[in-house]
């Protein structure tokens, strides 16, 4: 758990970078700090592991104030990932990954086991990469190593500063998915900086939208998209926020909402869509005139019904607009 209590940061000359922030990140929660560049989101993140000083207020990590702890001790218990991965060019991948366990005095065997486990987690063969060096890896691989390095000593809390920002869209998307799957398994408390609304919607349990050092709205992605609190939030999420909110729902949600019956009839020559696809992709397929209706199938290729634009519109009214006050 991370608690921000009346946190402010003032630079010389009375520039308020962070202005009286109060928020809580619960255990196992994935929270995105979202905002335009220069809004103070990175500063706020770096205040958690005391890379930036706190002018006023207090930040408590796992119940302990950063003022009580020695910064070195504190940082070793918080995973830290940055955009440009920051791998050490002079160390092998294994040494890079195991730097914190090494500082904590783990024995060889424990380190090796941990390395193998983590590499498996991100789908890299531990033996292939153990003795390699960072420059021999692709950008995506380097960033995966950056992530597991932060997880090496199994810290309960992780800070991530635009970790996937430097990757190309396809790789970024894939790593985001991978990381979400890992998070399902490890359930870390994560504070994640991003300037990308789509990334925030995809990844976050909750989003804190920040502007000029103040929190504009701290809510779930659905709430932020459907009920923006003010002008800034609605402008930041964009005119197409309804479309964006569609990526929060899967075709399965629609199937559940309308209790679609599985039609046993065999339909030839139609497109099929898996029920775990997002509605945003489904709309795109329909609008692309690939077909007027798409057959929904589950993992075992059982047909669950058919999807039309009409049906999605109905779902939209019920699920999304229906909630608007």
């Amino acid at each position: 758990m991370i608690e921000f209590q009346n946190v402010s940061k003032v630079y010389q000359g009375d520039v308020k970078a962070i202005d009286d922030i109060n928020m809580t990140v619960n255990d196992g929660e994935f929270v995105i700090l979202l905002g335009p560049s220069g809004c103070g989101k990175t500063t706020l993140l770096r205040m958690v592991n005391v890379l930036e000083s706190i002018t006023e207020g207090d930040i408590r990590v796992q119940g302990k104030s950063s003022k009580e702890l020695n910064p070195i001790e504190l940082r070793r218990n918080i995973g830290y990932v940055i955009q440009s991965n920051g791998l050490f060019p002079n160390m092998t991948i294994e040494d890079n990954t195991m730097i914190v366990p090494d500082l904590l005095g783990w024995d060889r065997k424990k380190k090796r086991n941990r390395f193998n486990y983590l590499m498996d987690l991100v789908g890299l063969n531990p033996d292939d990469y153990r003795k390699r060096f960072p420059h021999e890896l692709s950008g995506g691989q380097q960033q995966r190593i950056g992530v597991i390095r932060a997880m090496a000593s199994d810290p309960p809390v992780m800070l991530m500063d635009e970790p996937f920002g430097a990757l190309d869209p396809i790789i970024r998307h894939r790593i985001q998915d991978e990381f979400l799957a890992i998070q399902q398994e490890v359930k870390k408390t994560i504070l994640f900086v991003s300037h990308d609304i789509d990334e925030a919607i995809r990844m976050g349990d909750r989003i804190a939208l920040i502007r000029e050092g103040k929190i504009m709205q701290y809510d779930t992605p659905t709430e932020i998209l459907t009920h923006p609190k003010n002008e800034f939030v609605s402008e930041f999420v964009g005119q197409d926020r309804v479309l964006k909110s569609m990526s929060l729902y899967s075709v399965q949600d629609l199937v559940d909402a309308f209790n679609l019956e599985s039609s046993k009839q065999e339909v030839a020559d139609t497109k099929m869509i898996h029920s775990d696809t997002s509605l945003r992709v489904a709309i795109s397929m329909l609008l692309n005139q690939e077909a007027d209706q798409i057959v929904i199938v589950d993992q075992q290729d059982n047909q669950l019904g058919s999807l039309t634009l009409n049906l999605i519109e109905k779902f939209l009214h019920r699920e999304v607009k229906g909630k608007e006050r």
Partner: peptide, 14 residues
């Protein structure tokens, strides 16, 4: 690389 040093510091190296 300053990022390398920043990462090292953030992970708790003295």
């Amino acid at each position: 690389n300053p990022a390398t040093k920043d990462a090292a510091k953030g992970m708790g190296l003295t």
